[in-house]
């Protein structure tokens, strides 16, 4: 129960903060512009392939429009989610309210999970706000609802990882900017690290966030991908918990 109360408080704080609205507006503008360009590109491609049977058979909403768009949204998410998570503990450290929080009758783990769910909830709201784009396709065509759901599951998994990483870094510094830069740098590095290795089975590629999003953006939900995202999130939250515990024995 305490977890949900903390989560609600965190969500309200984000809805009342400038950062939350800037992220929402910026996210909707950039993803909306990308969507518009993608759709126009798809329409042009549709007219180009009318008399090319093979190209026409490969031109599907999922593969050519939704998948790449989800990829673009994921990059924006890597930039936006750290901005949502950066204030979680940094602000408490800066305003010296963390001690107050730690001495309240809730466990450290509940605090971590509450803040995590609050920030993730806001990230989910931002993602839901973008759903008008793929769902609008139903007006002019028949997109694959399963592929859309799978794509959003992938984005939510990515948001979960980046938010938990943001919580970890924000627990280490009182500066929100430092927490943002550190989270963004590590998340972007983790996203792109697979680019440097052409081997899909190498540990470097398997470490990459992007590698585990590829199939989700195409409509295939793999157990290994879900375990990867759960593992990264779990580890970051655990490390955040340990970090906050250290304030108790210092």
């Amino acid at each position: 129960m305490s977890i949900l109360l903390i989560a609600r408080r965190e969500l309200r704080a984000l809805l009342a903060s400038a950062v939350g609205w800037v992220v929402l507006c910026g996210f909707l503008f950039v993803t909306g512009t990308m969507w518009t360009l993608s759709v126009f590109g798809y329409v042009a491609a549709s007219s180009d392939v009318v008399y090319d049977p093979y190209a026409a058979s490969q031109l599907t909403f999922t593969a050519v429009l939704l998948g790449p768009w989800f990829g673009n949204v994921s990059i924006i998410l890597v930039l936006g989610a750290p901005a949502l998570a950066m204030r979680a503990f940094s602000e408490e450290l800066q305003q010296r309210t963390l001690e107050l929080l730690l001495t309240s009758p809730v466990s450290t783990l509940e605090i971590v999970l509450g803040k995590y769910l609050g920030v993730l909830g806001y990230a989910a709201l931002v993602l839901v706000a973008t759903s008008y784009a793929p769902l609008g396709l139903f007006i002019v065509g028949s997109p694959d609802i399963g592929a859309i759901a799978s794509g959003y599951l992938g984005l939510l998994c990515l948001a979960s990882c980046v938010v938990s990483l943001g919580l970890l870094f924000s627990a280490f510094t009182a500066s929100q900017l430092t927490a943002f830069i550190a989270t963004f740098s590590v998340a972007l590095g983790a996203y792109l690290v697979g680019v440097f290795d052409p081997d899909p089975d190498s540990w470097l590629t398997q470490l990459s966030l992007a590698t585990h999003l590829v199939d989700l953006f195409r409509g295939a939900v793999r157990l290994s991908d879900l375990v990867y995202f759960a593992g990264v999130t779990g580890f970051c939250l655990f490390a955040t918990w340990q970090r906050l515990e250290s304030f108790r024995w210092r």
């Binding site: 592929a147 195409r218 409509g219 157990l223």
Partner: peptide
């Protein structure tokens, strides 16, 4: 370890309506 285990015994759920996978 859990990831390696999941990768070795991977399962794929096809959410596409067209059954692409």
């Amino acid at each position: 370890g859990l990831f390696v285990l999941a990768r070795d015994h991977d399962q794929t759920w096809d959410w596409t309506g067209a059954g692409s996978f």
